[in-house]
Design a protein around this nucleic acid. Structure first.
Length: 416
RNA sequence: GGAGGGAUCGCAUAGUGGUCUAGUGCGGGCGCCUGCUAAGCGCUUACUCCGAGUAAUUGGAGUCGAGGGUUCGAAUCCCUCUCCCUCCGCCA
């Protein structure tokens, strides 16, 4: 959520920033509703002040004047009517504010689509292969480690079953990633609910706008998380943290569930885009001054996994048009997959500034007696499992159709 | 799933219709005292919103789990919901 005071004081700044995303937003009606709401609020408060004062006097006086009580009753009715209007205006204002995305950080390259993203660095070079590399769906089927038909049999399109070494390879990757983030990067591991309350989705920015992409249980109003970012953002909802506790660094392995309505038709082959997938997620809560630096560290932590797996990758900074709703700055990490001959997005690392903190009401005190202010939140995959699995299978495949195990995974995968 | 109990300031508690402008203790902060430490003493210590002021500051409104109701007036009475605890049942 953007600060209404900023919109009020400098609407042009906000308008310019948001326009870089390539959409138009209803700033004018927000300003109008804000003005309307505040004038109602002022009236309500004035009447209430008068009401409070008289009521107090009445309490202290010995004889209760019936006329005065009648007057007060009438005033009370006026107040509750006005209060109702004020509440409605506020609700309308808030619902408009919740639809506004974050403002891109000033340094983010302006652009409309993927072509305008800027590759900031790359690591490793795709191996020269003496044979034609297979895509993972063929490799996986031949080796009997990915079964697409059984996935469809159980749950329909965009589901698959990992079997034997396929399942074990995924599990090895998860353990390996968690261990690196714990031991080398100093994150704290957390185990999280995969279903959360509606308000959690609003805090992270996934509701009200993106309900289409979420699975939802009607009976208990549980929402299935599309990423661990959702529960992680809510871990400290409505809290005031001490400056000394920052930054908080969390790592979590969770399943993720996405309807993928928007991308109907895209990537239907293989395991690149399913309705359910696993992800190791990195998350940071920082003070405002350190969030930019911490984003660089977070990306470096995710990259470290790629390097240890010895898979070529590149890092791109997203242009303004590609930024997610809550993000003000994002780096994508893409691993090279020779079989399907494409760069696979295995991680998206974002600084959300105070956008989520404002929605989730997460604050901190710089000094023990200082006024609380909003923290910054950052998130990034470290990394997304199916795509790393693809990259490993396709990069480590041999001419005879077998696949080698990356050295770092050997301790996790004693093949017998 | 059934029955009962509960939710008050960071924590623990007091508060059953107007003097609650929510008290007290602990914890935190600032200061004093003191060879050091401990102790002691004094002061202080919630958040949000609207307004005035360049600012320090200041006026008002709201918040005792959430929402609604009764009342001139609600932490206190009533209703609904959420969450927590205890017991029973079921269960990995």
């Amino acid at each position: 959520m953007l600060d209404i005071r900023l919109i009020r004081e400098d609407p042009e700044l906000v308008r310019r920033a948001l326009s870089k995303r390539g959409d138009a937003f209803a700033l004018d009606s927000i300003l109008e509703f804000d003005e309307h709401y505040r004038s109602l609020l002022r009236q309500t408060e004035e009447l209430r002040a008068h009401h409070n004062e008289t009521s107090k006097k009445l309490g202290l006086s010995r004889e209760k004047s019936p006329q005065l009580i009648a007057q007060m009753r009438q005033l009370g009715e006026q107040i509750s009517a006005l209060q109702q209007q004020t509440k409605e205006a506020k609700a309308k204002l808030d619902s408009l504010l919740l639809e506004l995305p974050n403002m891109p950080h000033p340094g983010v390259p302006v652009g409309a689509n993927e072509g305008d993203n800027v590759v900031v660095r790359s690591w490793g070079t795709p191996k020269e292969l003496s044979f034609k590399p297979l895509p993972h769906w063929e490799l996986g089927e031949r080796l009997g480690i990915i079964d697409f038909q059984q996935g469809v049999k159980l749950s329909g399109t965009r589901f698959y079953v990992l079997k034997g070494l396929g399942a074990r390879l995924q599990r090895a990757l998860i353990s390996f990633m968690l261990d690196v983030h714990l031991n080398e990067h100093g994150y704290t591991e957390v185990y999280l609910p995969a279903m959360v309350k509606r308000e959690c989705m609003a805090s992270s920015g996934h509701l009200p706008k993106f309900g289409d992409n979420l699975y939802h249980d009607e009976e208990d109003d549980f929402w299935f998380i599309p990423t661990a970012e959702v529960p992680l953002t809510n871990l400290h909802r409505d809290e005031i943290l001490s400056a000394g506790s920052l930054p908080l660094n969390y790592v979590a392995h969770t399943p993720c569930f996405r309807r993928e309505k928007m991308s109907a038709g895209a990537d239907t082959r293989g395991i690149k885009r399913g309705h359910q997938f696993d992800k190791v997620e990195l998350y940071k809560v920082t003070d405002p001054a350190s969030s930019e630096r911490e984003l660089e560290r977070l990306v470096a932590d995710a990259e470290n996994i790629c390097r240890k797996l010895a898979v070529p990758y590149r890092v791109a900074e997203l242009c303004t048009g590609e930024l997610g709703f809550a993000a003000c700055k994002t780096y994508d990490i893409e691993m090279w997959a020779p079989g399907c001959a494409e760069w696979l997005e295995v991680s998206s690392c974002s600084n959300c500034g105070d956008f989520q903190a404002r929605r989730a009401n997460i604050r901190y005190r710089a000094e023990p007696s200082a006024r609380p202010q909003f923290v910054h939140t950052l998130n990034g995959s470290g990394l997304a499992l199916p795509r790393v699995l693809i990259a490993v299978l396709e990069n480590y495949q041999q001419a005879d159709g077998t696949v080698l195990i990356p050295e770092v995974l050997e301790p996790y995968l004693k093949v017998t």
